[in-house]
Design a protein around this nucleic acid. Sequence first.
DNA 1: GCACTGATGTCAGTGGCTGTCATCACGTAC
DNA 2: GTACGTGATGACAGCCACTGACATCAGTGC
Lengths: 199, 199
Amino acid sequence: MSVAVITYYRRMGRWEPNTRERLAKAALELYSERGYEQATVAEIAGRAGLTERTYFRHYADKREVLFDGSPVLQKLFVDAVEGMPAGAAPIDAVAAGLDAVSAMFADRRAFARQRQAVIVANAELQERELIKLASLAAAVAGALRSRGVAEPAASLTAEAGIAVFKVGFERWIAAGEERPMELLMRQSLDELKAVTAGA
Amino acid sequence: MSVAVITYYRRMGRWEPNTRERLAKAALELYSERGYEQATVAEIAGRAGLTERTYFRHYADKREVLFDGSPVLQKLFVDAVEGMPAGAAPIDAVAAGLDAVSAMFADRRAFARQRQAVIVANAELQERELIKLASLAAAVAGALRSRGVAEPAASLTAEAGIAVFKVGFERWIAAGEERPMELLMRQSLDELKAVTAGA
DNA sequence: GCACTGATGTCAGTGGCTGTCATCACGTAC
DNA sequence: GTACGTGATGACAGCCACTGACATCAGTGC
């Protein structure tokens, strides 16, 4: 079974193509089937037709294979923030970022649910997810500063945006939920505005 | 040197007392002197007059030794939230939590700076810090729900409070900063309210 | 042909972390 | 005061994540 997978690919060069993607697929499968801790890197590599050493040439550690999409997500968010007209309020620039990432996730809810189920089941993976979100917050804060927003307003607006993303994402992948991410993000942002509207 | 340390303690029972504290002190020293990655658990244990195996009986892993105060911080925050009068707004209950933890940190700025310098220098330690803050946010959200706050308002208010804490804490330990944490937390919270006050 | 490139394999080694059993000062019962 | 139970620790073997160093070899450019 583990070797059969590679027969689905047609050899085009010296090695099977799409090495990273094969590793990512094998890892998500194994983590889903047996749990993150019970899977070894050697097994993941074997299922992808590779060796453990080659796995570590493509991913920094056992967790990173689940976070390949993180840079793409970050670029989407930051570009949207930077693309807003100069006069727009910081919170509206962040809202544009949330819209942009919502569009990307639109047709990937099933994948997101499977991946999130793996992450929620393991503390190490949650840690990695949190530092990716922190990196995203830092990048968004940087984008806001480049728009002329001062500190600490830039960091606070960015952190608030990530908080909305976390809560909105959680609602989006909840069992039975079918409404689009964009709607849930907007609702969450409005809710945040409501609870922080102090007397 | 590593053995001399234990001579500072007077033997009161079969073993040297304050085992956990000795380990925490040795770890912070070694992490500060040589960096987190360059220190081994065996060295930490040796400096505390113990063996590696005993270290792992007191702390779950190499990182956890820096986060012993986390449960105390969480309890302080949650108790303050739950102690607010029933009619108080959620955001004001969170503000009370921020005040409570600020009081705890008041006379520990030097220690906090040393510890934070170690954490900022290493990604693994940042991950651990982030999951402690996520745990804190979850606990605060639970406290708010027990006050009758519905979801997603409870989670959003809690996340907003943690965002304020992160930004306020960073400002509090900045080089040259001498103003009290309580003031910086209040300023940060006011700033968050300002940036989220959408049209 | 031939040297060069670059992705992969192989192997040895470090260190975080765990399970298991032995040790032994202390308290308690009798 | 002797015997027994308790609990923190030490000693040891072992797994696995991760790394450095070197070998391999199909493709590429000349």
